[in-house]
Design a binder for these strands. Structure first.
Lengths: 342, 342
DNA sequence: AACGTTTTCTTAACCGGTAAAGTCGCTATC
DNA sequence: GATAGCGACTTTACCGGTTAAGAAAACGTT
């Protein structure tokens, strides 16, 4: 037996008022005496009623759902600690506003554009969090055309006029390279993430720049799909060269690839950090669980997600466009980095 | 400029019919000639119209959103490969039915009960996927009372009359212990997951049973919170005993703790698998990225999620209650298990 | 030609709220 | 003492669909 659906009408009847009055009370609008307001709330409590969000949405008031479409092959997502952590940060602020997250995995940006449009026009969401920006991202124009509130997680140079939340990847990469150079490394490699992603390009550029500035003797960069397998492959190929042509330090674009790299070094009989230094990115728990522990560029991903959500609410409530940097990842030295061995 | 909202009325006007007719066409209901049907679809296509799900929901037809509330501390979720992988499996089947996933992190079961009830009564979702069952789970009664379609991810003994999707944890644990025993281990420990969870209890019982049946010389079990830190702590405490009182093999309830255990063994100067064998659970990519690689009880988590979603659709479309086992995790031997050293 | 059936479509009443406009009694004002 | 103003509600018209009941045209029957 289904619990009989209780509607605004019953509440109104029980409180002895019209449903309009109940609506006023529940939206904290003026025009009701304290006495009737109380009677209404009491009646609602007694009947266990709460306004139906679907009806509310249809009637044109606020929507309490925010969208998040993620575009990465499903199987890769599973391992990336980043997303779940990010999502949990988002959730932490949605919760306090009684909002929910509509999550969807998409295959490509075009599909995402269609989805966001459908969500918005169907009033399914009040706004959206956009992630994984690429150069000339079609979402920027689409979202502007729709006039839909969004927060873009990505560097302002990629997100156009959209309100953005971002980390300063360029500075972080530079710091990473400087640190390794300061330890004495002259031949440094970087195993990057997906080439199509805007922040990957920015990191790549920053790495090149830093390599030039510091006049490194060798600098290599490759891009991957973020998977452990790809990280292992890349590492293997970097480390097979004979010593003078081989990097003495490698920076990775996420944790998983760094862990994979660690394992490849071991498999090749190279000591970490003696023969090669390894530096991870993001810094999840994982970095503290390996032998040696992984030095990393640390990042409060959870806080990043929370900030994105907070900013989205700002946009929804009419705040003008803005750019919200979150703290730059900081270097956390652990056991996988040291001066190059002799 | 917002794209002008196009509604059913405009489509009807353009096709020269009433909105009722448009509705019939889009719901593939009888009562329309092929000719008008075509005219309607053409008009809709030309205007780029699709029925508004919110209005549809309110008018009492099906809801194309399914709910998933996850009850684990946010920060732990980030690392657990399990959830994201599971979610991506769920998504893979939602996508082909044009459905979305409403995701919510909750602090405890009571909060979840309230949430599911609100979702259901507010017609926010068409059904829900329930995870992390515990003994006498209050959700069973709540959901039955509501008459809400759900699929319970958990052993039938925990999920009452609800349709369930589950893996045979008891058999898997038994197989794990048997395997280690077959290798010659007589002192085996298990680092379990959260004690409150039903499947943890089942694994614990199965482990005890297996230890008795095989007449092991030593059997230890501890429960944790699934985090790497907890796994490290547990491992450390197990391995500090002097050799005769120390396990020669440890089974973990997830990957992360096994990785942590591997690192602790190294830190204590113990060789894996020579001094101690380690066996992980779930088997994400992670197990292939360590040195030595981790033997594990492998599990198609992505497929598990997909099966859960498929089953939920079955329930929504009126299939009676049922019990859907998915394949039992199978042993995948790698480098972390071997006969006990001398 | 009259009549019961179908087929094809239209009407109108919801679904559960919101919000603009209207009603009514009461006090303040000149 | 007529009028304006205000507070406290009620009415009513949507929002964008679905669906049961009604109506008009087409069709087969005798």
């Amino acid at each position: 037996m289904t619990t009989s659906r209780v509607t605004i009408k019953e509440v109104a009847a029980r409180a002895g008022v019209s449903k309009g009055a109940v609506s006023l009370a529940f939206n904290h609008k003026p025009g009701l005496s304290e006495a009737t307001r109380d009677r209404i709330f009491r009646a609602a409590r007694e009947l266990g009623w709460a306004p139906n969000p679907t009806a509310r949405t249809l009637a044109g008031s606020r929507v309490d759902v925010v969208g998040l479409a993620v575009c990465r092959p499903a199987r890769l997502l599973g391992l990336e600690p980043f997303y779940m952590d990010f999502v949990s940060g988002v959730e932490s602020v949605l919760i306090e506003r009684n909002c929910s997250l509509l999550l969807r995995l998409v295959r490509n940006v075009e599909e995402e554009v269609g989805l966001q449009e459908a969500w918005w026009r169907g009033r399914q969401i009040g706004g959206s969090i956009l992630v994984d920006f690429r150069a000339d991202d079609p979402r920027v124009a689409a979202v502007e055309r729709l006039g839909m509130p969004v927060v873009a997680v990505g560097h302002p140079s990629l997100t156009g006029t959209l309100t953005s939340v971002w980390t300063d990847d360029a500075t972080a990469v530079t710091e990473a390279v400087r640190y390794l150079a300061a330890l004495g490394h002259r031949r440094i490699a970087r195993v990057g993430g997906a080439a199509a992603l805007g922040h990957t390009a920015m990191r790549t550029a920053a790495f090149d720049e830093a390599a030039r500035t510091l006049e490194l003797a060798g600098a290599w960069q490759v891009t991957t799909d973020y998977s452990g397998e790809a990280g292992a492959r890349a590492t293997r190929s970097l480390l097979t060269a004979a010593p003078p042509d081989r990097p003495t330090a490698i920076v990775y674009d996420n944790d998983i690839m760094a862990v994979a790299g660690l394992s490849v070094a071991a498999e090749m009989g190279l000591g970490v950090p003696h023969d090669v230094s390894l530096l991870a990115w993001d810094d999840s728990q994982l970095c503290r669980l390996t032998r040696p522990t992984l030095s990393a560029m640390s990042h409060d991903v959870h806080g990043f997600g929370a900030e994105a959500a907070r900013t989205l609410f700002g946009v929804i409530t009419g705040e003008g466009p803005g750019s919200h940097p979150v703290p730059t990842p900081v270097l956390t030295p652990r056991g996988s980095t040291a001066p190059p061995g002799v």
